[in-house]
Design a protein around this nucleic acid. Structure first.
Ligand SMILES: NC(=O)c1ccc[n+]([C@@H]2O[C@H](COP(=O)([O-])OP(=O)(O)OC[C@H]3O[C@@H](n4cnc5c(N)ncnc54)[C@H](O)[C@@H]3O)[C@@H](O)[C@H]2O)c1
Ligand SMILES: NC(=O)c1ccc[n+]([C@@H]2O[C@H](COP(=O)([O-])OP(=O)(O)OC[C@H]3O[C@@H](n4cnc5c(N)ncnc54)[C@H](O)[C@@H]3O)[C@@H](O)[C@H]2O)c1
Lengths: 251, 251
DNA sequence: TACCGCTTGTGAACGCATGCACAAAGTCGG
DNA sequence: CCGACTTTGTGCATGCGTTCACAAGCGGTA
């Protein structure tokens, strides 16, 4: 497959257009890894590293080298055969694909245990995600600054979100309040939601939700210990451990 | 592929053995969803609901009904055709598969913003994950109870973890300390790690790591807004959206 | 008992993601 | 300028996960 450039059918520059077209086709799983590569690459850049091979980068990112190259190929061919990748170049292209060329203003709703931690966290602004608004229903919290930002009352959510052009809403309220908060964020024009409440949110098609469910994470870990314990038990009983589909190996 | 029953090669009861064998074959993605079904079912049980159909449950869990049934089929056939599932029965079987029949003691390392939130969170003990140990390197924190548990110094990690039979270690330290903390947890016999630090951890094969990376989550959201914006732009410019590999059209 | 309508459980097809293996494309030393 | 060596980019095969569609099975009803 030859990448055809210079067809000049669009009004944007050819390079940009190519990137935008590609973005459509990137697998979700690859996007998540690109974000990891970006972090690793940023670290390398700060340490003065200017070039990196797929082998090195894949090691640092904890993935297979072939997968890394495939992932990078989704965003274009920016490596030099026989040499590797230029760190700066890769950083800027990944940032462009991930939409990090502009800042994404974040609002946190529910300034309890978790909300406080998020508001105080310095890692978001540094990565292009400034926290610009905090909301809570508790009158005692309203007005008090957390991490430098004063807490607004939840009823002001629409005006404040519009005014500060919030693009990502973080839900850190108790579960019963989550859906209602979500609805209010959506009607305030927020199209991206990060949800910490253990609740399945209903949203319109044009809104993207990602959930972080710590209890689920722990249960997955629990499953793996249980499985391991079972395997150990089976082996000690004399099970030979051949797969369920029992293919015989070795011709 | 026929599931073979009654071979009677193990010493455990047939039902248990069947479950254990199945656990091996459950796709990772399905395990995560089973945890969600469990939460929804627990909620239903508390509300007095005793029976549920795959359609209802799938709606509540935010998934496709066919997928839900497939997921449940991985753990066995506990439904009644023409009727649905008994809530209690499903709950107990999912709990068994996920290894929730016993408690999993949790240790949190790094009692800063996030560590405090985790230690104070009431949702874990209630779901079979009691937090039994807290660690930090900061001498000012050591001895102070957080969420009812006194903070231990990180140097005591091995003894305390062994003594309290910690099975899950949560890393909430700054990134530079994460790998060293991880190593210490591993040498203390902890086989499951939940990592909040934006770092790729190196661990032996017998240790399971899951990471929660909020910056990555936000970047994925950012990608989606960017993609949507691009699509809108393409349409408004009149681009017909043919892919990069697109055949050239021309009458 | 025989039939009917409903819901489960699952075989089979499909589509996406992963990993392999190698040609293409570059660098570097002579 | 050439040939040896290195590393990328990707076609292809394989495996996993999702979705569809329907036979099997159960409860209710006449
Ligand atoms: N703290 C953790 O470590 C942790 C871990 C996993 C999940 N979670 C989840 O995160 C969420 C928050 O946890 P938390 O420990 O911070 O709880 P919390 O009770 O400490 O804080 C909740 C905050 O939300 C506010 N609130 C309640 N209703 C609201 C509404 N309608 N609008 C705006 N604000 C509202 C409350 O006033 C309170 O300040 C919960 O859903 C919890 O299940 C928390
Ligand atoms: N706070 C958040 O909302 C948030 C969000 C995303 C990611 N994170 C990540 O979670 C981690 C913790 O964040 P935080 O905001 O709680 O940081 P923090 O600085 O508030 O707390 C870190 C704690 O770890 C302790 N610590 C440092 N070195 C240690 C060591 N070797 N052993 C034991 N304890 C040690 C410190 O004393 C401090 O109490 C960081 O890696 C951060 O990137 C936090």
């Amino acid at each position: 497959m030859v990448s055809q450039r210079g067809e000049g059918e669009t009004t944007t520059t050819p390079a940009e257009a190519a990137d935008k077209e590609r973005a459509r086709a990137i697998p979700e799983a690859a996007v998540a890894r690109l974000a990891v590569y970006l972090r690793v690459l940023s670290g390398m850049a700060e340490s003065g590293v200017t070039a990196v091979s797929s082998e090195e980068l894949s090691q640092a990112a904890g993935v297979n080298a072939a997968k890394l190259r495939k992932d990078l190929s989704y965003i274009g061919s920016y490596g030099t055969r026989g040499v590797g990748y230029d760190v700066e170049v890769l950083v800027s292209h990944i940032e462009r694909i991930l939409g990090l060329t502009r800042n994404h203003s974040v609002a946190v709703v529910g300034i309890g245990n978790l909300g406080h931690a998020l508001a105080n966290y310095g890692g978001f602004p540094g990565r292009g995600f400034p926290v610009t608004a905090l909301f809570d229903v508790d009158a005692d919290l309203v007005g008090i600054p957390v991490g430098g930002i004063p807490v607004n009352h939840i009823d002001e959510i629409t005006e404040v979100c519009l005014e500060r052009e919030v693009s990502i809403g973080v839900i850190a309220t108790p579960p019963p309040a989550a859906q209602s908060v979500c609805d209010r964020l959506v009607s305030a024009g927020v199209q991206c939601i990060l949800n910490f409440a253990p609740v399945v949110l209903q949203v319109p098609d044009n809104v993207e939700v990602r959930k972080v469910d710590l209890a689920v994470e722990m249960q997955i870990l629990s499953f793996h210990v249980a499985r391991r314990a079972d395997e150990a038990a089976s082996v000690s009983v004399g099970n030979n451990g051949l797969g369920v589909d029992g293919m015989v190996i070795r011709p």
